[in-house]
């Protein structure tokens, strides 16, 4: 049997403070009505519902909040923030938790992170997203070669895929690449995982 959670001992006040500071949201404003969960279009695949993540964050249960797949499956559509009766930007809290988990290298849904990196790699290289490049990189990283391949003909027909990467005029691509470089340098300086 699972033991009862000692919520006094496990309360991580520092974690609460960091989440509040980085998200700019007051976690204690949440009265657990559940409207975020009710409206969440991705909730059906979550291991922990949005209001439960908010509850874990409120109680300072860092592991429950950060090791949840839900923060990675969140679509960032912000319906939760729109519906929240207490004006909490719930999506911002989810994003904050996602970044905290990534920096601490405790990513519960590795493939989602791989997709992120695949996407960002194309942006870094060309200054803009490149769909086919993102797909190719993601397939290599995740070894999910045939995933969603059935959608390709339809997407091609609608000209959603350009075979050549989009570039930014007037050397914009290089500027974007330099932003990434600076970010990596800063991460290295601060000793965090980029």
């Amino acid at each position: 049997m699972k033991e009862a959670t000692d919520i006094r001992r496990r309360r991580d006040a520092g974690f609460i403070a960091v989440v509040q500071e980085r998200s700019g949201q007051n976690l204690s404003a949440c009265y657990q009505c559940g409207n975020c969960t009710a409206g969440c279009p991705a909730g059906f695949v979550y291991d922990r519902q949005v209001h439960q993540i908010m509850r874990a964050a409120q109680l300072g249960l860092k592991d429950e909040a950060l090791d949840s797949r839900a923060v990675w499956l969140c679509l960032a559509c912000s319906t939760c923030s729109l519906r929240c009766p207490n004006n909490i930007d719930v999506a911002a809290v989810m994003e904050t938790l996602r970044h905290m988990a990534r920096r601490e290298n405790r990513v519960a849904a590795r493939k989602v992170e791989k997709f992120w990196f695949s996407f960002l790699d194309t942006v870094r290289a060309f200054g803009r997203a490149w769909e086919i490049g993102t797909m190719a990189l993601y397939m290599m990283r995740s070894l999910r070669v045939f995933t969603d391949l059935d959608l390709a003909p339809e997407a091609l027909k609608k000209r959603k895929f350009g075979f050549r990467p989009h570039t930014v005029a007037n050397g914009g691509s290089g500027a974007v690449t330099r932003i990434f470089k600076r970010y990596r340098e800063r991460a290295a300086r601060e000793g965090t995982r980029p």
């Binding site: 657990q32 559940g34 969960t37 009710a38 409206g39 922990r48 519902q49 319906t79």
Partner: peptide, 24 residues
């Protein structure tokens, strides 16, 4: 729990999308 949306299903009924926070 609360209800986030109500919309007609086109067949004369309404779909009520809510949350049961006790069920999670």
């Amino acid at each position: 729990g609360r209800v986030s949306a109500v919309y007609p299903d086109g067949l004369g009924q309404y779909v009520v999308m809510g949350a049961d926070t006790l069920l999670g």
